[in-house]
Nucleic acid binder design. Structure first.
Lengths: 207, 207
DNA sequence: TGTACATCAGTGAACGCGCGTTCACTGATGTAC
DNA sequence: TGTACATCAGTGAACGCGCGTTCACTGATGTAC
């Protein structure tokens, strides 16, 4: 895992890059090994040196994606707490930051590997299902804890289902990606996040 | 289109039923014609009598899905206006109804063909992309008009992006399905809708 | 320092199965006159 | 009412291409003694 510090990107890493993009564009089953080889210049036996079969590729894609996803989550919470010791204001800053990150996503049609896999789950084994679920549960847990912390200082103005509210962040991102792709509009996810941010502010302050 | 009034379900309709379920479970590319034949008892040439190629099957699945989707939308708005002449209260009733519909979905792992296609869009042609986008825009338009109508009677308490707010309904359903599938929890979508319903109430009444 | 061996990161050719598609054909029902 | 033709809803067999996978092999680098 030292690729980032080295000049050359390994064949394995190039295969994963190409595979992730292809999976997001047409799904896992339609992504052929041959096309990845053509794109990366790796030989077929080179592929099978790195991945024992196509299933191992799927697992590697998901693991790398979830790792990065977790870093992003940490980054967002770190930013939230950087200048604020008030848990609510810090959270609102973090959500603003998150919305901007979603605006600046590199690709034209951003998407989420977890969502793609969820919509093709019959292709994958138990291990992959569990990895995927665990990834989502980390988001739920982090947000839920944060809301409970906020609620100690700012008692919520309405009755609210904290678990569902924590899931709303993932729901907005996932749903936003689906609409963004279908409508070819990359502003949808960031705007949904801002809407959610307003909702949180109202819940805890009454505006 | 008289199948519903007749006793027997046509081979075409049975193929579409099987195909829709398979696409939702593993994606379009991984859904083979042979497996649909095995499930429905139709012969291979019977399939190609009804669909000129696999692409025609995709289009037919999407068209049928969007047709039903639109009926569901109409049903929800009809229910909303049934007993209420107040646009906000009617809407809140409609959302309650909608949340219950989402709780009662027949399948174990409900999903949306539009989302599945959006995550495999490279497999499809322009015509299918346009159909899919149009389907989503109907939802946006209907909800947006409704919010503007509500706003005439109940001026919103906060500044709100009505277009994004209209998209939130689709976003919650699509995102809810993704989480619901990944976590195997069918309560996620209905709970998100109830959260959204609360948000609407607060925006227009301040609670 | 030199030698032996192990590991890493692949190469190149072949294989067989499943896939979407095509083609010539058919029995039952509907329509024109 | 009978006959001719068209359309509907398929059947059965064959085809070729692309797919994931396997196998025997290899040159470069790392490690033990």
């Amino acid at each position: 895992m030292l690729e980032a510090t080295e000049g050359k990107i390994s064949a394995r890493e190039r295969l994963l890059d190409a595979a992730e993009a292809a999976v997001l564009a047409k799904g896992f089953a339609a992504t052929s090994i041959d096309e990845l080889l053509a794109e990366t210049g790796v030989s077929k036996s080179g592929f099978f040196y790195h991945f024992k079969d196509k299933g191992a590729l799927a697992k590697a894609i998901l693991e790398r994606y979830l790792e990065r996803d977790r870093e992003l989550l940490d980054q967002m919470f770190a930013r939230a707490d950087e200048l604020n010791d008030d848990p609510l204001h810090g959270f609102l800053v973090g959500m603003k930051f998150f919305s901007e990150m979603m605006s600046d996503l590199p690709s034209n049609h951003p998407g989420c590997i977890a969502a793609s896999f969820a919509y093709q789950d019959q292709l994958f084994n138990r291990e992959i299902h569990d990895l995927n679920a665990a990834g989502l549960l980390v988001w739920r847990k982090r947000f839920r804890e944060r809301f409970e912390k906020i609620a100690q200082k700012y008692p919520p103005k309405i009755d609210v289902d904290f678990e569902a509210l924590a899931d709303t962040v993932s729901v907005m991102v996932e749903g936003g990606f689906v609409l963004g792709r279908a409508l070819k509009d990359s502003t949808i996810t960031p705007r949904q996040i801002l809407l959610f941010r307003d909702y949180i502010r109202i819940i805890f302050t009454g505006n």
